[in-house]
Amino acid sequence: SDYEVNVNGIHHRFHNISEELIKFIEEALRRGEDLREIIKKVRELLG
């Protein structure tokens, strides 16, 4: 049904976003950045 496609589409989009965010955060932590600064950047990215 349309509803299922829609829900799956939304889930898929969020899954991709969270994968990208996790990579972004892991790389920043590897560079020794402060978690609070990383979260601030993530918030800015998400608008």
Rank of each mutant, 00 (worst) to 15 (best):
E44M: 12
Y3M: 04
L45E: 07
E19I: 10
R30L: 13
I22K: 07
L29S: 05
G47E: 14
S18T: 09
D34R: 07
E27C: 05
Y3R: 01
A28Y: 10
L35P: 10
I38M: 05
N16Q: 04
I38P: 01
E20M: 08
H15Q: 14
L45N: 11
R13V: 15
R36W: 13
E27W: 04
N16R: 02
Y3K: 01
D2N: 04
L46K: 13
G9K: 01
G47T: 12
E27T: 14
R31Y: 10
E26S: 06
V5M: 03
I38K: 01
I25R: 00
E26W: 04
L21V: 14
R13D: 13
K41A: 14
V7F: 06
L21H: 06
S18H: 05
V42F: 06
G32D: 15
L29P: 00
V42A: 06
E19H: 12
E37A: 13
G9A: 01
Y3S: 00
I39Y: 02
K40L: 14
E19F: 12
S18C: 03
N6W: 01
R43E: 15
S1K: 14
K41G: 08
V7Y: 04
G47M: 13
E44Q: 12
L46N: 14
V42P: 00
K23N: 13
R13S: 13
N16D: 15
F14S: 01
L35Y: 02
V7R: 04
D2S: 04
E26K: 10
E27A: 14
V42C: 02
E33F: 06
H15C: 03
D2K: 00
R43T: 15
E19L: 11
I25S: 00
G32C: 03
N16C: 03
R36T: 14
E4Q: 04
S18I: 05
H15A: 12
Y3Q: 01
R13G: 09
L29K: 05
H11E: 08
R43H: 15
K40Y: 07
I25W: 01
I17E: 01
R13T: 14
H12D: 06
N6T: 13
H12T: 04
F14V: 02
L45Y: 07
R43L: 13
G32H: 14
H11Y: 08
R36S: 14
Y3T: 01
H15L: 10
D2L: 00
R31H: 13
R43W: 06
H11D: 09
E20G: 12
I22W: 05
H11M: 08
N6F: 02
E4P: 03
N16F: 03
K40F: 09
E27N: 12
A28V: 06
I38S: 02
I22L: 05
V5E: 01
D34G: 13
G47N: 12
H12Y: 03
I22S: 03
D2I: 04
R31C: 03
